[in-house]
């Protein structure tokens, strides 16, 4: 994969004193959907945190190369402005921060970074309303505090709403399907599929294959004990369903 948008080389990372990632290698191709599957404790969420510069994660070795540039030391907001987006497994509630105000601030920060004019409140609301409808979200989400009192499904839809508005280039979805009923899963998947344009890359982190029925992956990577131990096509999902992670041998 020489034309990768994101290249992770021999990545080692720890949280606290515990070494979680132990020489992880992974390349994301532009326009492709990469699914990361693995047992509990394999390091899936640590990988997603490492990619967005989470304060919990300390990199102890290796490189994260995004668009040919090492981003190991880059601040979280710079990574976001450059186009890396993480949909959180458990989005945090922020009482007092209005959802629309937050998202407009984020969008205008990105537009400024790209040398574009800021959107005014009316322009932004129009944009937001179109996406809300598509995601089956109520219009009062605009005025509510960010994620405050949202159900699990509403939080995940709100993550996808942010993704649609911010139009990132590398999209990391950490357990996006957890806690979703069928309708919410369908709406969220529809939002994700809408973002597929042949250029954006997706890294779908999941325990279960359910979400992969809706978002067709191009590659499946199995993560075990802090390393990617196998990469294959979508056919690997059936094998994992049948035999579990224990049956997978390191390549």
């Amino acid at each position: 994969m020489s034309n990768s948008i994101l290249k992770i080389e021999n990545l080692q990372a720890k949280i606290g004193d515990k070494q979680i990632l132990k020489g992880l290698n992974l390349e994301l191709e532009p326009g492709k959907v990469h699914a990361i599957m693995g047992p509990n404790g394999a390091g899936k969420s640590t990988l997603s945190k490492a990619l967005v510069g989470h304060y919990d994660v300390e990199l102890t070795g290796g490189d994260i190369i995004y668009k040919g540039k090492n981003i190991n030391e880059m601040e979280p907001e710079e990574r976001a402005l450059e186009g890396i987006f993480l949909s959180f497994q458990h989005p945090v509630e922020i009482p007092g921060v209005n959802n629309a105000y937050f998202l407009r601030t984020a969008l205008n920060a990105k537009r400024k970074h790209e040398g574009k004019e800021a959107l005014n409140a009316a322009e932004f609301l129009r944009l937001m309303r179109d996406h809300l409808e598509m995601l089956g979200m109520k219009s009062d989400m605009i005025s509510r505090s960010l994620n405050e009192g949202f159900s699990g499904g509403e939080k995940k839809r709100n993550e996808i709403l942010q993704m649609l508005i911010l139009e990132p280039e590398v999209i990391i979805l950490d357990e996006i399907d957890s806690g979703l009923d069928i309708d919410a899963l369908r709406a969220v998947s529809e939002g994700i599929n809408k973002m597929k344009d042949g250029k954006r890359s997706f890294l779908v982190i999941t325990h279960y294959s359910r979400i992969l029925d809706y978002i067709e992956p191009d590659y499946i990577h199995v993560l075990k004990d802090g390393k990617v131990i196998k990469t294959a096509g979508p056919e690997l999902v059936a094998q994992l369903e049948e035999h579990g992670y224990d049956a997978i041998e390191e390549e």
Binding site: Y55, L81, F85, P91, V92, F102, T105, A106, H113
Partner: peptide
């Protein structure tokens, strides 16, 4: 961190 992860400065 959540706000920063969306491109909002510290």
């Amino acid at each position: 961190f959540y706000l920063q992860s969306r491109g909002i400065s510290y």
